[in-house]
């Protein structure tokens, strides 16, 4: 059947099918399985965003959870019922007082959540465009630190370490699937675009890309802003699923979880990121149950065992497959290598 599909469309189709499989498993399973499935689909939206930047630029980001946080808080403000907001946010600063009355539909909240994150992306893009390697990784981490500190200290707006509550649950299983498919399509469209191709060239060899006229900084910034948008949307979906959250949901623990997903799957590949999100979501749930004693006759194991085991899996993959399970390959796209090293044509 795949033969009938043009090669360019195969990867997003296969990845969408994986997302659909996750949704179907969620639909036929019990409430717990459904919860895992929705969170897995939200994770797919997030890693599609992260990989829009990381896979094409070859630069790992440790800060994308900050975009997710912005999306989540934005969606919370847009969807918590106005009367509740009036009691929750009594000390909103004057310029933000309008937030008490705004109200939007779920889909608008997700899109605006993405847009607000994209604004932070735009503000930080000039720095990201100039940095590579370790410096870039540290800069992305710094963005996370700044956002986290602002969110946890700006109590009149974010309620600090208290929870945002009363968000109507709107992220259904099928809504999550829809957004996951859309995120995959957007990420793939960027990957295949002229900007995406040039950015991938810079990933392979920075100086050669410059010598080919590629404006590396510009393409990095483009991918960065687009990825911020998708991660912000993921945050909004998350908020509209869990209905209450606080700032601690968007810090190192979440960052680590997402990094395990993309590194395990292959951080240079969209397919790797999506596969990683699906597999690690299941793994996390299994490990959580293991920690709670479901497989050890009811005796719970010390807290943190699940994370420890996850870290162990990450370490194993890093050693055995440094570029993850997919490397830089994409599902459905045959990156043909010369089977045997190409023979030079023999002179007649």
């Amino acid at each position: 059947m795949m033969v009938l599909v043009p090669e360019r469309a195969r990867t997003p189709l296969i990845l969408s099918a994986i997302a659909a499989l996750v949704a179907v498993l969620g639909a036929v399973g019990g409430p717990t399985v459904q919860r895992v499935a929705v969170l897995a689909l939200v994770s797919i939206v997030f890693v599609a965003g992260l990989s829009t930047f990381s896979a094409n630029s070859g630069i790992m980001s440790f800060g994308h959870v900050a975009f997710m946080a912005l999306g989540a808080y934005t969606a919370a403000f847009l969807t918590i019922p106005a009367p509740l907001k009036a009691t929750l946010f009594t000390q909103l600063p004057e310029p933000l007082a309008f937030l008490r009355d705004v109200q939007s539909s779920f889909v608008v909240a997700v899109v605006v959540g993405g847009l607000v994150a994209a604004v932070l992306g735009l503000a930080t893009a000039p720095a990201i465009a100039r940095l590579t390697g370790l410096q870039s990784g540290i800069a992305t981490l710094a963005i996370l630190m700044v956002v986290y500190n602002v969110l946890s200290s700006w109590t009149s707006v974010t309620r600090g370490s208290s929870s945002m509550i009363g968000i109507p649950q709107a992220t259904t299983l099928w809504a999550a699937l829809g957004f996951a498919v859309a995120a995959i399509a957007v990420a793939w469209a960027y990957h295949s675009s002229r900007s995406g191709l040039q950015l991938r060239a810079s990933r392979e060899d920075y100086w050669s890309s410059v010598a080919s006229g590629v404006a590396v900084g510009r393409h990095r910034a483009t991918a960065w802003v687009l990825s911020a948008f998708l991660c912000g949307a993921a945050g909004a979906l998350y908020a509209c699923f869990v209905t209450s959250f606080n700032v601690s949901a968007f810090f190192l623990s979440a960052t680590f979880g997402f990094i395990v997903m993309v590194v395990l799957g292959g951080y240079l590949s969209l397919s790797g990121a999506v596969l990683g999100a699906a597999v690690v979501s299941v793994l996390q749930e299994v490990l959580r149950r293991f920690q709670d004693g479901q497989f050890t006759g009811g005796s719970a194991l010390p807290a943190g065992v699940a994370d420890l085991l996850l870290a162990g899996v990450l370490l194993f993959v890093l050693i055995k497959f440094p570029l993850g399970l997919m490397g830089a390959r994409e599902l459905g796209l045959r990156r043909r290598r010369a089977s045997v090293k190409q023979k030079e044509p023999v002179e007649a």
């Binding site: 191709l197 991938r200 060239a201 392979e204 060899d205 990156r335 043909r336």
Partner: peptide, 14 residues
């Protein structure tokens, strides 16, 4: 110093 994991065609297209 080619773009190793891109195809030859993509190398030139870039």
């Amino acid at each position: 110093r080619v773009f190793g994991r891109l195809t030859v065609f993509e190398n030139v297209e870039v």
